[in-house]
Amino acid sequence: MLKKQIPLAITFITGVIIVITFFIPHPPFGRLQQDALTWYSVIFGFTMLLGVDSLVRFHYRKLRRREKGWWFSIIFYGGFLLSFITGVVSEVRFGDAFNINSSFMYFYNTILIPLQSTMFALLAFFIASASYRAFRARNIDATFLLVTAVIVMLGRVPVGYMLWHKLPNLTSWILNVLQLGPMRGIMIGIALGTVAMSLRLILGIERTYLS
């Protein structure tokens, strides 16, 4: 009962109330959706602590057992404490951790941002390796993918125009017609699938998340 029925009832009641309040602007219903969002973010805050706890303990285990590469866990703790402490110190000194002159933002801009952009830029290499494999078209479907990929790729660089001056036009036609149609189909499918899943969740048919 406590472990299954009540959680299912909570899902049902919350779901139904929020669907209904979507159509009722009158107080107190009109603001319930907004309140639910606030509630969700508060709950999220608590579970975030669980996440941090999980990661901190993962590295603690590595350190304690001197597992292979244990000293990298020290780097992890160093990074964690560095950003956390500078965040608190910056808040005390500037009244706002996100003040542009704070040490917290300085670390963010000089260490975290380059790490993020470099990780992101790895994509240039990976898209090349993925293209290489995709371009050895394994079957007829992959060939279709290959054809539009090559046209669009060429159509967006000057070489494409030099090869055939209408290639940029063909590219925009492919993007606006051939790409848009199926993408709309995918979105309609996902939307209907999402609604069906939401109904299953509210009705308690889909309950994997409660196991």
Partner: peptide, 19 residues
């Protein structure tokens, strides 16, 4: 399961009309 149930219920309720 309680916080999970609330989060999922709120989501399901939101997503139907918004979708």
């Amino acid at each position: 399961k309680y916080p999970l149930a609330f989060s999922v219920g709120a989501y399901a309720g939101f997503s139907i009309p918004v979708t």
